[in-house]
């Protein structure tokens, strides 16, 4: 099983930076997510997480450091959280952190969105101010 590294890009589309590390079990999704084909981008990430949580089965820390994501990306975030929730329910060691900028202008909206993620997936997300 290999690590995933995708360098984020703020161009025609906004591609988030991805770092999934099989040795440390630390997974990061950072930057901005707004893509033309969201599912195509996220599917390999789901596959990696499914393989890690069913074959490697070591502790997993997922760090979100997203500044912006559109609604299509928010569906994919839900899918990621659901995979992590299933791993947790099966006895896996999972920790989810959401890093946010307390000075961000629309911080209330962002916190509301994270609360919605928790309600929808039933997984605990630790809010970590930058």
């Amino acid at each position: 099983m290999e690590n995933i590294h995708i360098e984020g890009k703020h161009g025609v589309n906004f591609i988030p930076t991805v770092d999934f590390n099989v040795e440390t079990g630390v997974c990061e999704l950072a930057g901005e997510s707004y893509l033309e084909d969201t599912i195509e981008f996220y599917t390999p990430l789901y596959d990696w997480l499914k393989q890690y949580t069913t074959e490697v089965k070591k502790p997993l820390i997922f760090n979100f450091r997203l500044r912006y994501f559109n609604t299509s990306s928010s569906k994919c975030i839900i899918d990621i959280l659901n995979i992590l929730k299933r791993y947790e329910a099966a006895g896996g060691d999972v920790k989810v952190n959401w890093y946010y900028d307390a000075d961000e202008e629309d911080i209330e909206d962002e916190l509301e969105e994270i609360e919605d993620f928790m309600i929808e997936t039933n997984i605990k997300i630790n809010l970590v101010p930058n």
């Binding site: 559109n70 609604t71 928010s74 569906k75 839900i78 919605d116 309600i119 929808e120």
Partner: peptide, 17 residues
């Protein structure tokens, strides 16, 4: 949250934009 849990392409659902 309800719409987000419906598969895309379902009439009236899916799109939460």
């Amino acid at each position: 949250r309800k719409l987000r849990n419906m598969p895309s392409g379902v009439p009236g659902g899916g799109n939460i934009g």
